[in-house]
Design a protein around this nucleic acid. Structure first.
Length: 151
DNA sequence: GCCAACGTTGGC
DNA sequence: GCCAACGTTGGC
């Protein structure tokens, strides 16, 4: 079982949206490194930290769980979709997605400044300068610490 | 709104 | 295969 961090701009899709929907497709990933994590390593039952980017406050705001194995991202096949990619073919899809299911909101969101100030969490990928990956691996000790600090 | 960081594209 | 140009992400 592995741990991940998913970034989302709350104006596009927030933790409250996920709480309302209970479950969602994580579509639209169009970065090869993120795709490789998603397609090759994510499995049912993996745990996800939900992070709000491009907003105030920047913070880890909740926990979710991967609730299906990876499958082709069908939005890449749809010319009318903003994530359309003509190079992704039905027989050989370029892009993949997973479903995530809401677990809970943190009682206390862990803000990016708090992450950077914490002796353990400061090593998270999301705390590194220029860290743009929208889907990142998370170490178990980091996941546990976020749960501890956020409860 | 600015811009650093980084990925992708395409000319050569 | 190099690298300049360009586009995007996302913190500040």
């Amino acid at each position: 079982m592995q741990y991940w961090l998913f970034k989302s701009e709350p104006s596009a899709y927030s933790i409250d949206d996920l709480a309302r929907d209970s479950k969602t497709h994580w579509d639209g990933v169009r970065n090869f490194q993120a795709r490789n994590y998603l397609r090759d390593q994510m499995r049912i039952g993996d745990k996800v930290l939900f992070y709000h980017s491009n907003t105030d406050p920047l913070a880890i705001v909740g926990v979710a769980e991967i609730s299906c194995d990876p499958y082709p991202d069908h939005t890449a096949f749809d010319p009318n979709d903003s994530h359309y990619d003509p190079k992704s073919k039905l027989a050989t899809p370029t892009w993949y997605m997973v479903d995530i299911t809401f677990t809970r909101k943190l009682n206390k969101p862990i803000t990016l400044p708090e992450i950077k100030a914490d002796p353990i969490l400061q090593h998270m990928v999301v705390a590194q300068k220029g860290s743009r990956l929208s889907v990142q691996p998370v170490l178990e000790e980091h996941f546990k610490r976020v749960e501890l600090l956020g409860s």
